[in-house]
Design a protein around this nucleic acid. Structure first.
Length: 278
DNA sequence: AATGTAGTCAACCGCAGGCAT
DNA sequence: CATGCCTGCGGTTGACTACAT
């Protein structure tokens, strides 16, 4: 960091204050957002007199001051979701964060780094991942076949109806998709299973949950359920995930890239596609 | 009780993409 | 179309805290 040999301190650089925010600054920023809404961060300093850059203001708001932020530790349910979504999207923290209401990308990123980045994944986890990929590929090919089939059926239908009634392949598909999402949300989470006293192999847990969490929205929905289930006392995911990964001195990049499935299906559209398998 | 170490969190930086001019 | 500004994202750093020795 430039010019900060003694930490954040309370110094100014180019007229901008840096380092920890004071409650007074927080107040100013909150008041500003309340009046003008989010965005236009660069104008904050002009309008409020705050000696903070737009970037700094935005970060402070997004990561700390936003009223909808969830405080407290990441729950086992959330951890489970993070693990699975990271398997899907890699280090796309903001994308993952969207599936975890009240959590910020920064929070998730920090959590991942402290809990999972340290070592290589265990054999179990690697096997689970491999199976996960395989099953997903199978699902996708099945999905394609079904879509083709559905198209054929729709055509036949049209021929029979004379084209009167809309057979709806798009809207109906969406409906079906959301139904699937709901179903996925009903599926037990790792924590729930653990809380019930069950003991599973890590890979099975991950496989099971991962298949349930193919769609980010499902995670958001599931979270609601998870929260209602109460704090999740078990150390289930916490211990499985973090302990399993060991504490080797391998650099986390390897670990991170290992879980990054960019080569398979990563983009949101594709991920969304798995929400409408049938 | 003092010290060392690991974990957690907040904040910074650089980069990239989107958008207005 | 090119340029510049703004915003958002991911990576990194450093302070603080909790725990272990």
């Amino acid at each position: 960091m430039e010019g900060a040999p003694l930490g954040w301190g309370r110094q100014e650089v180019d007229g901008w204050r840096k380092g920890p925010w004071t409650s007074q600054e927080d107040k100013l920023l909150v008041e500003h957002v309340r009046q003008h809404g989010e965005g236009r961060w660069n104008s904050v300093s002009k309008l409020t007199g705050l000696k903070r850059s737009g970037k700094s203001c935005r970060l402070r708001w997004v990561n700390y001051l936003r009223p909808d932020l969830k405080r407290g530790k990441i729950t086992p349910q959330e951890e489970s979701i993070i693990v699975q979504l990271h398997a899907l999207w890699g280090n796309r923290w903001s994308t993952i964060a969207r599936s975890l209401p009240g959590r910020t990308d920064n929070e998730i990123k920090n959590y991942w780094r402290t809990h999972f980045k340290k070592g290589k994944p265990s054999k179990n986890i690697e096997r689970a991942r491999a199976r996960f990929l395989k099953q997903r590929q199978e699902m996708q090919s099945q999905q394609q076949q079904l879509l083709q089939l559905a198209g054929q059926v729709a055509k036949d239908h049209e021929n029979q109806d004379g084209g009167g009634a809309r057979t709806g392949t798009t809207a109906d598909d969406e409906d079906r998709g959301s139904a699937v999402v709901d179903d996925a949300c009903v599926a037990p989470t790792v924590a729930a299973a653990e809380a019930a006293g069950g003991h599973h192999h890590d890979e099975d847990l991950i496989m099971h949950d991962a298949m349930d969490f193919m769609c980010p929205m499902s995670c958001a929905l599931l979270l609601h359920g998870a929260v209602h289930q109460g704090g999740g006392t078990g150390s289930c995911c916490g211990s499985t995930a973090s302990d399993e990964y060991g504490s080797g001195e391998e650099d986390g990049a390897t670990w991170g890239s290992l879980w990054n499935l960019d080569g398979v299906v990563v983009d949101d559209a594709a991920a969304g596609a798995c929400c409408t398998p049938w």
